[in-house]
């Protein structure tokens, strides 16, 4: 199993550094959630990812104001595409994780792993 986590380096990446990362997890560090493109998300699936997470700041405390909101919109858009091509859109998720929330990061990743295990069972 492979999970790709796109992380905003201001928030989720900091949280990831405090967390114990399961072996399935690959991190992609971004300067801001706003940098993520639909193309990246789809390419991650194409490259064999079972799940993709986009973890950014809370929408109201993005350093670049709309970066997190844009990330969320792109995830929503990519979910539509996934639906059309027959991939469970739940395999792609967006969550806000602030820099001091190591436990939340860990839980989101664990939930994703759990969900994927259930889906493949």
């Amino acid at each position: 199993m492979r999970i790709v986590v796109f992380c905003c380096e201001n928030s989720a990446y900091q949280a990831a550094r405090q967390s114990r990362l399961p072996a399935e997890v690959d991190l992609i560090r971004l300067p801001c959630g706003g940098r993520v493109e639909v193309l990246h998300l789809l390419r991650a699936f194409e490259g064999g990812a079972d799940g993709v997470l986009v973890l950014t700041c809370q929408e109201d405390n993005c350093q670049s104001l709309h970066g997190s909101a844009r990330a969320r919109h792109r995830v929503e858009y990519a979910k539509e595409i996934l639906k059309e091509i027959g991939i469970d859109p739940e395999r792609l998720q967006w969550h806000p994780v602030t820099s001091n929330m190591g436990p939340r990061f860990q839980k989101i990743v664990a939930d994703m792993v759990e969900g994927l295990k259930l889906a493949s069972a």
């Binding site: 900091q14 809370q58 929408e59 109201d60 405390n61 820099s99």
Partner: peptide, 11 residues
């Protein structure tokens, strides 16, 4: 929503 407690600014 962010509740502006600023705890995330510490790290």
């Amino acid at each position: 929503k962010c509740r502006q407690c600023s705890a995330c600014l510490i790290p």
